[in-house]
Nucleic acid binder design. Structure first.
Lengths: 99, 99
DNA sequence: CCAATCGTTTCTATTAACAGAAACAAATTT
DNA sequence: AAATTTGTTTCTGTTAATAGAAACGATTGG
């Protein structure tokens, strides 16, 4: 299943990063947000060709999480890859002080 | 922490519901997607004043999940409430056959 | 070919979210 | 006010994701 489309539509409707961020803070637990954040950082670092053991050490996660990220990146035609290979990916790492 | 802003920005950048949906399918496990989907349905039904035990029965979730949703809805000035009270909420339930 | 490095898998233990049931509390009905 | 309904909390057990360690496998350089 199922209603993922519904959820995706909600995020799409919200449009601004600030509103989406607030919704995520309401919907997810702190633990889940951490997990999600790490998950994305793993993908980003993997895409930058950092060694898997280095990623695990730097982000303080286990190798199984890194391997899982690796599997995601092996798929072709993914949104993940498309996004990471775009210029936006690096913008996000700089973390400018927009607030 | 932390980099929730980064993740929120990614969703915001994607813009279309279809792209966001695809990214979610790549990032989350099936189990997590189910959880998330149920979580939103709970909020929606709670907001429609359905009784908590009925919600639990209909969605086949435990009361603790419903109570958690209830706590979210009790907060004021949330994106969740703003969204559920808007007209978009009902659109999403109809689930038109756009694919 | 061998050794080292790296990606991947496997194993057991841990943890957070959750199920299911019961108890408790607040509200409503009568 | 007593009984019923509904919201909330508490309890124990379960499950999926994960940590940590080790092993396995592939690749590469020597």
């Amino acid at each position: 299943m199922k209603n993922i489309k519904v959820l995706a539509k909600i995020f799409a409707d919200l449009r601004t990063g600030e509103d989406i961020r607030r919704l995520m803070l309401e919907l997810f637990t702190q633990s889940e947000l951490n997990t999600l954040s790490k998950r994305w950082q793993i993908l980003n670092l993997l895409n930058q060709k950092m060694k898997q053991r280095d990623i695990a050490a730097q982000l303080q996660v286990s190798l199984c999480k890194v391997t899982r990220g690796s599997k995601i990146l092996k798929k072709t035609n993914t949104i993940v890859k498309k996004y990471l290979d775009g210029d936006k990916a690096n913008d996000n790492n700089i973390q400018k002080n927009t607030k």
